[in-house]
């Protein structure tokens, strides 16, 4: 058997199915998007080669306004990294300490939003934000803050923030679980040794636990940033990019180009740029964390 596994042909034979799937499902569509981005094409008619014209139009056209969509996605990424991940880390540190009553119960509760369908969550928050009977406005009116009651998803000033809240809320549990698993893998002896030396819990977390789970934090940051760039479903359900593109993100813009405006070439351009941006940020974050990782 060992002889069989050491043969090159056997290795290739075993790798081949996965390699074919990888190329067909991941690599080929990327190249196809890049190829179609060079054409003016409605998706089913005749294609006209236009070189990089779609890229030029994407960054200059007011009617497409890609920069606004990209700016929104970057803002979401910033919120994810600076608000969502610290909350996740805080919860993970609280639960990962161990010995707390109901630890597993809390874990499950925080993770529930990740398990629920995004469309269901979207519908739930649509009801919360409803200007007439939504619980948010009803509560504000009940405590005498009527002037704070707003058309949350219909007002350009509040729509983006209102759409971000459920997105950030939904994935807090996801990142928390990743970090919790990392915290649980920190050897308890380190913690005990620090405590014997007089370190407080906060100091233990800051100087021992967090540095040791940096690889996990790096993964969470990559997921949060690339997830923000790709965000689509909740925005689509809540606002569909409106009002007046105030909540537009690259993915909703891409769908609009592909299927509403029949601009398959432009949609492919956005798709190609999204892939590029996701790779770029994944590499950038990897680079930023590279020298600071602590090997556990």
């Amino acid at each position: 058997m060992t002889k069989l596994y050491s043969k090159k042909s056997t290795i290739i034979l075993f790798i081949l199915p996965a390699f074919i799937l990888f190329v067909a499902i991941l690599v080929a569509p990327i190249f196809a998007s890049g190829y179609y981005s060079l054409f003016n094409w409605n998706g089913f008619g005749k294609k006209t080669f236009i070189g990089l014209e779609n890229y030029r139009e994407l960054f200059t056209s007011d009617s497409i306004n890609f920069m606004k969509a990209l700016g929104n996605a970057m803002l979401l990424a910033a919120f994810s990294v600076f608000i969502q991940l610290p909350i996740s880390l805080g919860l993970a540190l609280l639960l990962g300490r161990g010995g707390r009553k109901g630890e597993r119960g809390f874990l499950s509760i925080y993770f529930i939003p990740v398990l629920i369908s995004t469309v269901v969550i979207g519908q739930l928050w649509l009801k919360i934000y409803n200007p007439d009977y939504g619980v948010l406005n009803v509560a504000l009116r009940a405590i005498g803050l009527e002037k704070w009651a707003k058309i949350w998803l219909g007002d350009e000033k509040t729509a983006l923030g209102a759409a971000f809240v459920p997105i950030l809320w939904q994935y807090v549990g996801y990142h928390m679980l990743l970090m919790y698993a990392g915290i649980k893998s920190v050897p308890p002896e380190y913690r005990e040794a620090a405590m014997i030396d007089g370190a407080r819990e906060g100091q233990v977390n800051r100087f021992i636990v967090i540095p040791m789970i940096k690889p996990i934090i790096k993964i969470s940051t990559i997921f949060a940033v690339t997830g923000s760039l790709k965000s689509f479903d909740l925005i689509y359900v809540l606002t569909n990019g409106g009002p007046d593109h105030a909540t537009e993100v690259p993915s909703t813009l891409m769908i609009s180009m592909l299927f509403l405006r029949n601009r398959y070439g432009m949609g492919s351009t956005i798709a190609f740029l999204l892939i590029f941006l996701c790779f770029f940020f994944a590499l950038l974050i990897g680079f930023a964390f590279r020298d600071k990782e602590v090997v556990a």
Binding site: E156, G242, P243, D244, L260, R261, R263
Partner: peptide, 20 residues
């Protein structure tokens, strides 16, 4: 109108409704 033109038009209509 064709899909592309119709959606540009709808974008502007949306701007009118929000008094932009």
């Amino acid at each position: 109108m064709s899909a592309d033109r119709a959606n540009i038009y709808l974008d502007y209509v949306s701007k009118i409704y929000s008094s932009k």
